[in-house]
Amino acid sequence: MAQDRFEELVETFEFLDDWEDRYRHVIEMGKAFPPLEDALKVEATKVEGCASQVWLHPRIEGQGATATFDFAGESDAMIVRGLIAILHELYAGLSVEEVTKVDARAELARLGLNEHLSSQRSNGLRAMVERIRATAATTAAT
């Protein structure tokens, strides 16, 4: 169910020979990801459970299960900004109903992230995925 953009990312990661190259690519993705407006860095958009400061601001067009999901985000850690960019590739443009059906753990495993992120980063990534899924589920139910 992954987006075409995410499939391209998987192909890029398969092309990169070692984790250090992949790690650099994640950081480059973070640098390229648009910053979040300061006005949106508020308690309501802050993701708890991350070692770094993380904010995710949903942008949903439409209503109910067919509403289109997108989000903006930022972190004070460059690798985490890269993880936000990866999640954007995975989820942006899906309907909120589709977002709730994505097996993020399996999709991210295709990038080899599970083996190389610290437990703190893994917990933060899981917290971001949970926030995205909860936002989508709430929208789908309305």
Results as ranks from 00 to 15, higher is better:
residue 90 L to F: 08
residue 44 A to T: 06
residue 42 V to Q: 00
residue 41 K to P: 07
residue 46 K to G: 04
residue 54 V to K: 02
residue 28 E to D: 14
residue 140 A to Q: 05
residue 60 I to F: 03
residue 13 F to V: 08
residue 65 A to Q: 12
residue 121 R to I: 00
residue 61 E to Q: 10
residue 32 A to Y: 09
residue 106 A to L: 11
residue 132 I to W: 07
residue 48 E to P: 07
residue 21 D to F: 09
residue 132 I to C: 05
residue 52 S to H: 03
residue 14 E to P: 13
residue 41 K to S: 06
residue 137 A to Y: 02
residue 46 K to L: 04
residue 127 A to K: 01
residue 1 M to P: 14
residue 53 Q to D: 12
residue 5 R to M: 13
residue 134 A to N: 05
residue 30 G to P: 02
residue 80 V to I: 04
residue 39 A to N: 08
residue 54 V to Q: 02
residue 121 R to E: 06
residue 75 S to F: 03
residue 43 E to Y: 01
residue 103 D to T: 05
residue 41 K to V: 04
residue 78 M to T: 15
residue 95 S to M: 04
residue 81 R to T: 01
residue 109 A to H: 15
residue 98 E to N: 07
residue 131 R to C: 07
residue 96 V to I: 03
residue 61 E to S: 09
residue 80 V to K: 08
residue 134 A to I: 03
residue 29 M to Q: 08
residue 39 A to F: 08
residue 84 I to Y: 06
residue 91 Y to N: 00
residue 107 E to Y: 10
residue 131 R to Y: 08
residue 136 A to V: 04
residue 35 P to W: 08
residue 103 D to P: 02
residue 59 R to C: 12
residue 119 S to N: 14
residue 27 I to F: 13
residue 124 G to N: 05
residue 82 G to R: 07
residue 107 E to R: 11
residue 30 G to C: 03
residue 26 V to C: 09
residue 26 V to K: 09
residue 25 H to C: 10
residue 20 E to M: 15
residue 108 L to R: 08
residue 83 L to K: 07
residue 103 D to A: 06
residue 114 N to S: 15
residue 7 E to Q: 15
residue 44 A to M: 06
residue 19 W to G: 01
residue 8 E to A: 12
residue 110 R to P: 10
residue 139 T to Y: 12
residue 60 I to W: 01
residue 73 G to F: 04
residue 130 E to A: 13
residue 56 L to I: 06
residue 93 G to H: 01
residue 99 V to D: 07
residue 137 A to D: 05
residue 95 S to L: 03
residue 100 T to V: 07
residue 54 V to W: 02
residue 64 G to M: 04
residue 78 M to E: 14
residue 136 A to D: 00
